[in-house]
Simulated assay, not measured.
Amino acid sequence: MVKLAFSKPTRDAEGQRLLFDRYQQAGYDGLQLKGNQYSPYLDDPARFQAEWGSDPAHVSSLITMNPLDEDGKERLRTLFRFAAAVGSERVVLCHDVPRVGLTDDDLADIARMMSGLGQEASDQGVRLSLHHHTNEPVMHRRDFDVFFDAVQDKAVSLTVDTGHLMKSEVLDIAGLIRDLAPVIDNVHLKDYEDGQFRLLGQGTVEFGDIIDALTTLDASATLCVDEESRAEIFEGMEVSQRFLEGRLVAR
């Protein structure tokens, strides 16, 4: 069966409660949380579980925007410990530094550094997955090959984001998924048009070929509707679920 998660930014505790209360009712298997949805609890995972529940599905992945200077590495290690304590299966890292000016050697150095961090995560039962991002180190099609050729011991996996690929002008998304299938553990399904992220089916991303390519992924990979349009929470859940209904096939 396809494991389908949902993710959406929330402005306040009321929005977060709605997200937690409704995602399973709307047909999703788990949540992938944005930073502000868990970061107040990093030093007290028991308080997070007391307030939001102890179901690991609530925290199937934890998304973070984080540079990897020394302070950033320590924050990431704190996140690994939190993820392990609450039962999250992966930390999704958006490497929050500019892409401009980086060479292939720089990308390879970053990959080796992340490999060490990925091993630390693995030691705690958590996966480290790189989320490529527009204007961050892994952005262009060639960057993916350079980066993952340098990853050591398969310690870092890849979260593919269909919207950010379009925004970064990487247009053969299905081809990228097929090429990188061995390292992909997570896919963010997101539509895009005219500089804005859209509800699924309301942008210019060609999902037919992409969904075909998803069948090349390992059965353990997670698909996540990463809903960053201007729609309200439940509208985003429902519209995305209707769009995907009948399109996703068992892997």
Score class of each variant (00 low, 15 high):
6 F>Y: 10
55 D>C: 11
248 L>Q: 07
109 D>W: 03
246 G>K: 05
79 L>I: 05
182 P>D: 08
224 C>H: 05
194 D>S: 10
78 T>L: 14
118 G>D: 02
16 Q>N: 12
155 A>N: 06
77 R>S: 05
83 A>I: 05
98 P>D: 00
186 N>Y: 03
190 K>T: 14
67 P>Q: 09
129 S>R: 07
243 F>Y: 14
23 Y>C: 08
246 G>D: 04
194 D>K: 14
89 E>L: 02
204 T>A: 15
173 I>H: 02
11 R>Q: 14
60 S>Q: 13
19 L>V: 11
57 A>K: 10
12 D>K: 09
245 E>F: 11
51 E>N: 06
137 P>D: 02
158 L>F: 08
65 M>Y: 14
46 A>G: 12
234 F>K: 14
225 V>Y: 00
149 D>W: 00
32 Q>M: 05
100 V>Y: 01
132 H>R: 02
148 F>L: 13
204 T>S: 15
225 V>T: 09
85 A>K: 04
244 L>Y: 04
174 A>L: 04
234 F>L: 15
4 L>V: 09
63 I>F: 12
227 E>W: 01
112 R>L: 13
240 S>F: 03
233 I>R: 07
147 F>L: 10
218 D>P: 15
45 P>S: 01
149 D>S: 15
82 F>W: 02
225 V>H: 00
61 S>I: 14
184 I>L: 00
217 L>G: 06
228 E>A: 05
122 S>L: 08
183 V>A: 04
173 I>D: 00
121 A>M: 12
223 L>V: 03
167 K>F: 06
158 L>N: 13
189 L>S: 02
146 V>G: 09
142 R>T: 12
92 V>P: 08
66 N>K: 11
38 Y>A: 10
232 E>I: 13
25 Q>E: 15
59 V>N: 04
214 L>V: 04
217 L>P: 13
5 A>V: 06
42 L>F: 04
85 A>D: 01
245 E>Q: 15
137 P>R: 05
63 I>P: 09
18 L>P: 14
29 D>M: 10
75 R>E: 03
